[in-house]
Design a protein around this nucleic acid. Structure first.
Lengths: 148, 148
DNA sequence: CCGAAAAGCTTGCATCTGCAAGCAATTCGG
DNA sequence: CCGAATTGCTTGCAGATGCAAGCTTTTCGG
């Protein structure tokens, strides 16, 4: 028997790798950003006050706290984010989206949209695209880090 | 307007990250393999003569030649693959699946199936799973490295 | 109120990965 | 047939990432 379940998962991982490789190339050359850096900005964008503590950001990016620390440093130098501390809890070090960061993510989202449209070309109906979106959303419902 | 196209791609990348993280943990503890090492074995498994030149393997794994070289070395020490050269073209260095490697991949596939089934739990109909598989397959049709 | 446990962040170390350069073998052009 | 270009592979170097350890601050238990 052919395992449709297994097949779906294999195709999911494969498709993701293919798409991400395309995105990475485009993002690097056009915006000077890695895909993960773009995702970091997008997470901040949809957070209250456009900011998140490092640990929370790590959860949403499905990565480790040390990675967030190291990702934020160069982006801070570029002025895309700032560091902000909490007066109530001195342990917290928020990563805050700056205006420059907000602008950057707007540009990046345009690229993302363009690439997404290109991936579906014209052989896809709006309904099929919606279907795929729904199925994928259901697959990982409840997992942290969903981007709107 | 909400961009369904963009949303599908974002969910694709997100879902893949979530699933891969789960797989990685399970694979490491149960089989002592990384997900990519398992994929390498699976690529060999479905190749003619259960072997592939390093460059071809790199294409199918969507990675670089140097990565394949470095991935193969430890797996060779473990006896999962062997190196084989071509009498016609002395440049070629095939990565060949061994019996031990074939056994390993069978075990790994079982884990993979189990995890895949778990991802879909029971809220999914067979039709929906087939639908997802079809949509994803269509999305990256023609890209190298598809696993059967 | 005090000491223990926990939480948030950073840093050292190890691993994985890609690019560019280098080497060996093959193929191509004239 | 010969030199140039190409192909396959490996290796040096740099960047990204996770884990474990360490530091500071907060919270918890009695």
């Amino acid at each position: 028997m052919t395992d449709k379940t297994l097949n779906s998962i294999l195709r999911l991982l494969h498709a993701s790798n293919v798409i991400e490789a395309r995105l990475a190339a485009e993002f690097a050359s056009v915006h000077g950003l890695s895909v993960n850096e773009a995702f970091l900005l997008m997470q901040l964008e949809q957070a209250p006050l456009q900011r998140l503590p490092r640990v929370e950001l790590a959860k949403r990016l499905l990565t480790s706290a040390s990675t967030v620390t190291r990702m934020a440093a160069p982006m801070e130098k570029l002025g895309l984010v700032t560091r902000q501390s909490d007066s109530r809890d001195a342990r917290l070090a928020f990563v805050v989206l700056t205006d420059a960061g907000a602008t950057k993510i707007e540009e990046a989202r345009a690229t993302l949209s363009k690439q997404a449209a290109n991936a579906f070309k014209d052989r896809w109906t709006a309904e099929e695209i919606g279907q795929l979106s729904d199925l994928l959303g259901r697959l990982v419902a409840g997992a942290p880090g969903e981007l709107a």
